[in-house]
Amino acid sequence: MSKITPSETDRRFIRHALALARRGLGRVWPNPAVGCVLVKEDAVIAVGWTRPGGRPHAERVALDAAGDAARGATAYVSLEPCSHHGKTPPCADALVAAGVARVVAACTDPDPRVSGRGLARLRDAGVAVTEGVLAEEARDLNAGFFSRITRNRPWVRMKVASTLDGRIATAAGESKWITGARARAEGHRLRAEADAVLTGAGTLAADDPLLTARLPGFAARQPVRIVLEGRAPVSAAARLWKTAADSPVWLVSARRDAERDARLAALGVRCLTAAAGADGRPDIAAVLEMLAGEGLTRLLLEAGARLNAAFLAADAVDAVSWFRAPALIGGDGMPGIAPFGLGPLAEMPRFRLVRRLPLDGDALEDYQRET
């Protein structure tokens, strides 16, 4: 079968599929967030995106919406249709059974149960296949799913809100509020697109955060809220524990405390034990592997200077969202990142700027780790 070159029309409808897929971010783990657009005679006849919990898949949603009109249509999907039997039948088979004439896929699925088999199944059934349309954008959107499959850990975004000189609080610990309302709203959006938000016991004690996405219309888009306990015990009076019935709260610690765990479990908190590092604190690599095993793909790190440094020292930061206020505190203020043992300058982690967003005087700078 001759190869079909992607057209501007293909790119336009894949962009549509990617936009649909984004609606599932933070809600579909451990599955990828996928969008599907069914097109016939250059008109959209149905759309779908992965539903909360990862099922039904985007293709199934779109096919059900289209019904018999799917016969002869082109399906634009942001990720290769699955080919394995899980809790639902393979989407590749569903597309074949519906009589779809062509499938345009942004990128292949890294899951070894799929990884080219879905597209091969379509080709074997006589469906025309075009792949690799806006592949980089598709992989970026599902960076968390790709990370969990290929690296056995979630993709990690570190969030920092600071002054121009990188200070997150005064010497006395005052930090509310360095940035303004629009910047804080954007931070809530980041929470809503994450599977989980992780903070440390120190931040829990100092700020007593809820770590929820508090924006209009976002009530159903709440991340798992994770507290990482170091050598010092977590605060027993934190508001977070009392809200575990509203959205999940996990405590991750390197030590067991039967009385404490039982008390938190009664509130609905899930207590997990991670391997300790040489300093007695939870080993970051072990924590991330455990979280991947729980199905998490996208982790937002909202922590203090020491935990930010620990993640950087473990080479576990994939992206940075740095909110900057046009103000200065000075060297006696608290830095956003503590020392993390950097040696030669050549070894410092490097990131590339991918976006700068003005926010009513503040600014958000998004960075991706250089590979």
Rank of each mutant, 00 (worst) to 15 (best):
R11M: 03
F13R: 11
I14L: 13
H16A: 03
A19S: 15
A19M: 10
L20E: 06
R23N: 13
G26V: 11
R27P: 06
P32W: 08
G35D: 09
G35R: 05
L38I: 03
I45R: 09
W49M: 06
R55G: 10
R55N: 13
R60V: 06
R71Y: 02
A75K: 02
S78N: 08
D93H: 12
D93L: 10
L95E: 06
V96K: 12
G99C: 01
R102Y: 06
D111S: 09
R113K: 05
R113C: 00
G116D: 04
A120V: 13
A120N: 14
R121P: 08
G126F: 05
V127Q: 07
V127M: 08
L134V: 07
A138M: 03
A138R: 09
D140T: 07
L141K: 00
F145A: 02
F145S: 03
F146P: 05
F146N: 01
S147T: 10
V156N: 04
V156C: 14
M158E: 00
S162W: 10
T170Y: 10
W177P: 10
G180T: 07
H188W: 02
R189N: 03
A192C: 11
D195N: 11
A201C: 14
L210W: 07
T212R: 13
G217P: 06
R221T: 05
I226K: 01
I226F: 00
L240C: 13
K242Q: 15
S253C: 13
A254W: 08
R260K: 13
G268F: 06
A275P: 01
A278R: 15
D279E: 12
I284R: 04
L300F: 11
E302T: 06
A305Q: 13
L307F: 07
L312Y: 04
A313S: 02
A314F: 09
A314C: 10
V317S: 04
D318N: 10
L328K: 08
I337A: 01
F340G: 00
L342I: 12
M348P: 03
R355D: 15
R356Q: 02
G361W: 00
A363H: 09
